[in-house]
Design a protein around this nucleic acid. Structure first.
Lengths: 333, 333
DNA sequence: GCTATAAATGAAAGCGCTTACATCATAGGC
DNA sequence: GCCTATGATGTAAGCGCTTTCATTTATAGC
């Protein structure tokens, strides 16, 4: 492992000059630069990035914190972020916070201790105050799917409210009036917003919300199964089902198959997220597209623009959802 | 940010003593230890892990290199590895090599430059020689789904050959004799092994391989679609289809639906991997279970045992696949 | 050629921590 | 009490690099 000292001896220049060549951060005479580059090539020199980081407090890498490493949502997000940074010659360091406040904090500390130049945070459990304080410490970060008013210029979000509205309006436009709703865990902000959108669509068609047709699910397949069982047990009349995410929609559809309920003829189902398994569900799921890949890419661009000062296209901070119509919804007969 | 120097002044001990307390790597008198811990608590001291790494050439973290960050397979793998290390108080640093030799090498260099204590490598494009040479450099790593004879004690693999055999034998036992096979890209070792297993099962039932009933796919959904189209175009007689992975199986099933071919009544289909979307496919996919989560966990345990010298249960190096029977296969009528 | 200014380079200190070897303190045996 | 061995702690150097300020070199104008 050659060091910068060996390169400087071979090239006949100082350590500082070698550093200047490596970092292109100060003018170096062309002839000098060529000598240094030749010496580096001859020695197969690779900078020690830990030493670079200690000396400069930077690392040419970006920390990403997601809730889980598994799942269609996070895979797409991570993949798109990584691709954008790879193209810009940067590395990513990924951590998982498991929607647990303590683990989220530890993960943030881990990423900061690695001198990540910036963080992209998809966090749910830490408080707004914690994030505001983190920002006050000079930590550069951008938030995904989290809106904090005081940090508005660094939040990249989906318009969840509008997505919930679109899902329900889609069914209303198909003629459905008795629409059951399976929400996500209501402590989660996006679950709340999607539900509010659902209510707005009902209001627009002058339909009162029936609390019996609302079930709080867990954003997992089991939530959809339990919700359908719950609604059926109550002998409620409903011809359509809005699930606040695709996983719960798949659970509901699986249960409907088992109960010989025909989808969409007897029950129309719409999900939310358009995760990549949605089209494996049979019949193919009608859903609300959540462009998580685009959102991740935009977060990466935010960092490249604001932290690395590389001009870029405009930063889009709010993404609009859209209906992806497939086979699981049907006019109400 | 308090430094070790400030802690030593407050506690009235040397830097070395503070370091010894932090690292528990040398005896420290109990009273001294308590003084140091009190000083650290009062100052809110957190070690600078970059400095620790530079001084010690270690980082308390493990590098993981996978082909992609997205996809059901990798999500499960990463998640299980991370969980095992989290429980052991270690961090992971994840990189993606995209099955590209140059990117795989760069990623390995990135992870090494971060002083990762060990690497867990799921690599396809780099050569055996490169890996042997890497080992010779003293780099500690364990390979997943890659067998290199010279590095046999650090390879954790699935018995792909047996899995291919099981898939085909399952159909043979259901009475099928005309079985089409969709392989993965044949430069990939696991694709080769699965195909060999397929051939062994046929041989066991004294059936000759018909090259017309073999199609080389791409391990993606499109491979399954193209394969089915290819076989049908040839007007071949076949009652069953083995796909070398679940994604191709899903593509074939989707095409069959579009062509009004009833699964499994007219065509039985079996996949491989048992990735988590397999049960969303309709009818639910019969497949070969590839316990990638368990394999990842075992790789983590290998590191904990061999790199961190923490005794552990025995290391299982070869995992056996098994048939997961669902709804996409059926007796041949 | 001389002077002033700008450009290029070098010397030295420091980033925060680890660790080998030196030194000091303590305990046990004679 | 003295000597020896062991345990505990301190000192100093170093990990590989960056960056500030001092020094040297090159250039332009007179």
């Amino acid at each position: 492992m050659a060091t910068i000292y060996e390169v400087s001896k071979l090239a006949g220049v100082s350590l500082a000059t070698v550093s200047r060549v490596i970092n292109s951060n100060a003018p170096v005479r062309e002839a000098t630069r060529k000598k240094v580059e030749a010496a580096m090539a001859e020695l197969g020199y690779r900078p020690n990035s830990v030493a670079q980081s200690l000396a400069s407090s930077r690392s040419n890498s970006i920390g990403i914190l997601v809730s889980e490493l598994n799942g269609p949502f996070y895979g797409v997000l991570l993949s798109r972020i990584e691709a954008e940074f790879r193209a810009a010659g940067k590395h990513v360091i990924i951590a998982a916070g498991h929607s647990n406040e303590s683990l989220e904090r530890e993960s943030i500390e881990f990423l900061r201790s690695r001198n990540c130049d910036a963080l992209i945070l998809h966090v749910e459990a830490v408080s707004d105050d914690y994030l505001i304080e983190l920002s006050g410490k000079g930590c550069a970060f951008v938030l995904i799917n989290r809106y904090v008013e005081e940090l508005a210029d660094r939040c990249i979000t989906l318009n969840n409210h509008y997505g919930g509205y679109l899902a329900t309006r889609h069914l209303l436009e198909l003629g459905h009036r008795d629409i059951a709703y399976v929400s996500g865990p209501m402590w989660k902000h996006d679950a709340q917003e999607r539900y509010n959108g659902h209510r707005e669509a009902l209001a627009e068609f002058h339909i009162n919300v029936d609390p019996a047709l609302v079930f709080e699910g867990d954003f997992q397949e089991t939530g959809g199964e339990q919700a359908l069982a719950h609604f059926l047990q109550q002998n409620l009349k409903f011809t359509a089902l809005v699930c606040a995410n695709d996983e719960m929609a798949s659970g509901a559809i699986t249960s409907a198959h088992d109960l010989k309920i025909k989808i969409p003829e007897q029950l129309s189902v719409i999900g939310f997220d358009n995760v990549n398994f949605a089209h494996y569900i049979y019949p193919k799921l009608t859903t609300i597209d959540y462009p998580i890949g685009d959102i991740g890419q935009m977060a990466a661009r935010w960092v490249i623009k604001n932290v690395y000062q590389q001009p870029n296209t405009a930063i889009q901070e709010v993404f609009e959802p859209r209906v992806v119509q497939r086979d699981s919804t049907h006019a109400c007969s």
